[in-house]
Deep mutational scan, measured.
Amino acid sequence: GQVNVNNTTYTFPTPKLAKEFAQKAAKKYNLTVHVSGNTVTVK
């Protein structure tokens, strides 16, 4: 799974890890998680 945070893309071996990372990043920066297919964007 891929996660985009502040124009930086992070790649994870599983969608589960990507989702967990996205949720932590969203909480940390007070942003929202947007899911589109296999790509998760935090903005």
Rank of each mutant, 00 (worst) to 15 (best):
N30H: 13
K16A: 12
Y10P: 01
V33Y: 06
T39E: 06
T14Y: 03
E20Q: 13
Q23V: 11
V40H: 00
T14V: 02
V5S: 12
L31I: 10
N7I: 15
V33L: 06
K27E: 12
S36K: 10
V35K: 02
P15M: 10
A18C: 02
L31F: 07
A25R: 03
K19I: 11
A26E: 10
K28D: 10
A22L: 02
N6Q: 13
T11D: 05
K27P: 03
L31W: 13
Y29I: 06
N38S: 08
T11M: 06
A18L: 01
N4L: 10
N38R: 13
K24L: 14
A26W: 06
T9I: 13
F21L: 01
G37Y: 03
Y29K: 09
T8Q: 09
N4S: 13
G1D: 11
A25K: 03
P13M: 06
K28S: 05
A18P: 00
V42Y: 03
P15S: 11
V42H: 01
A25P: 00
V5G: 13
T8C: 15
N4R: 12
T8N: 09
F12L: 03
V35Q: 05
Q2Y: 08
T39H: 05
N7E: 15
N6I: 14
T41G: 02
N38H: 05
V35Y: 04
N7Q: 15
S36F: 09
L17H: 06
T39Q: 09
L17Q: 11
T32I: 13
Y29L: 08
V5L: 12
A22N: 01
G1S: 11
L17D: 07
N7Y: 15
S36G: 03
N30R: 06
V3K: 12
Q2G: 11
N30K: 09
L17W: 04
K16Q: 13
F12N: 00
T9S: 09
L31E: 05
N4M: 10
T14Q: 02
N7D: 14
T39F: 04
G37F: 04
Q23A: 13
P13D: 09
N38W: 02
T8H: 15
S36M: 10
G37E: 04
V42R: 01
E20K: 11
V5D: 11
Q2W: 07
G1V: 13
N38F: 03
N6L: 14
L17P: 00
V40S: 00
G1L: 12
V35N: 02
K27M: 09
V5F: 12
N4Q: 11
